[in-house]
């Protein structure tokens, strides 16, 4: 396109003062245009509503025990039946879902933030900072995460689930941080970062104001996919008794209990397992649709 043609095009579209649509708006439109994005978001919204508004309409709380109904099938009094202890499956399942959702979301946020910081600092400063941080990343990749979390599990008891979230996040960030590092190295050579450096902007400010915002699409997608990874890890750990500790419940502890009684009391296993699968599926759908929405090279219509 030559210069005159460009001016001509500008005249046609109503001059240079007309603002182009903002990036977030473009992404949102493309996200909602994909059936996967719509389905995932709706599903996730419904699940959140169920987890946090469901307990309000249920007559039982998750600590209640009905001593007149042990291991009973679904009925009018207990919508999804009861467990061996007389606990209401509906109430317990929703409580477990609350815990799993909160743990998953927090762990994903912490791990993505960690990945962004470590990767950006290593890629921007290079030299010894880079070598130390890369070495640390490699070390954590080599340490068996399951083992470390399991060994530390006695510390997670009675209300210390925040520590559990932090430990969970500590083993989720390494691969993303390697990607962030690579992208930071190439961003550092770009003109706008060079310009900021020559104007005397301090390096840490450059990282927060120029480097990280340019990686936001990668980080948002990564955070979304980390939610499902965190929920799955939490479930596996809690299944073997290494995660969320009783009396609190999560998907993992419920599935472990349900699997033992599933043969003669299917309702103790299948509702929890089904909800878990639907939750992870919804998160993955949202993540996948987000990735396509952020990717400029993705084809819009199929």
């Amino acid at each position: 396109m030559t210069l005159s043609e460009e001016q001509f095009a500008e005249d046609l579209t109503g001059g240079p003062e007309r603002r182009p649509p903002s990036r977030s708006r473009v992404v949102a439109r493309r996200f909602l245009a994909a059936p996967r994005g719509r389905a995932g978001l709706t599903l996730l919204g419904l699940l959140f509503l169920l987890a946090f508004a469901g307990p309000l309409v249920s007559p039982w709380s998750y600590t209640d025990r009905d001593f007149t109904a042990f291991l009973q099938p679904p009925s009018a009094a207990h919508w999804l039946g009861t467990l061996q202890t007389g606990a209401d499956v509906f109430a317990v399942t929703l409580r477990g879902m609350q815990k799993s959702l909160v743990v998953g979301l927090l762990a994903a946020l912490v791990s993505t933030a960690l990945a962004a910081l470590v990767g950006a600092f290593a890629g921007y400063f290079l030299g010894w900072t880079d070598r130390t941080l890369t070495w640390l990343t490699d070390l954590l990749l080599v340490l068996p995460a399951f083992l470390v979390l399991a060994v530390m599990s006695p510390l997670f008891g009675s209300g210390a689930w925040v520590l559990f979230v932090v430990m969970l996040a500590l083993f989720l960030w390494m691969v993303t941080s390697k990607i962030v590092r690579g992208m930071t190295v190439s961003l550092k050579r770009r003109e706008f970062v060079q310009a900021a450096r020559f104007m005397g902007v301090p390096p840490v400010t450059i990282i927060f104001r120029h480097v990280l915002p340019n990686l936001s699409s990668l980080l948002i997608v990564d955070a979304t996919l980390n939610v499902s990874a965190a929920i799955l890890t939490e479930t596996s750990l809690s299944y073997f008794g290494f995660g969320i500790q009783p009396p609190d419940v999560s998907f993992g502890t419920l599935i472990a209990g349900g699997a033992r009684t599933a043969v003669y009391a299917p309702w103790t296993f299948w509702f929890v397992a089904g909800l878990l699968v639907v939750t992870v599926l919804a998160v993955n759908l949202v993540g996948d649709a987000l990735r396509d929405a952020f990717d400029p090279s993705a084809t819009r219509t199929r």
Partner: peptide, 14 residues
């Protein structure tokens, strides 16, 4: 997509 949403502990029990 569905398979990746099913954790091994659930899949094995199923």
């Amino acid at each position: 997509f569905v398979v990746l949403a099913v954790p091994v502990v659930v899949l094995a029990n199923m």
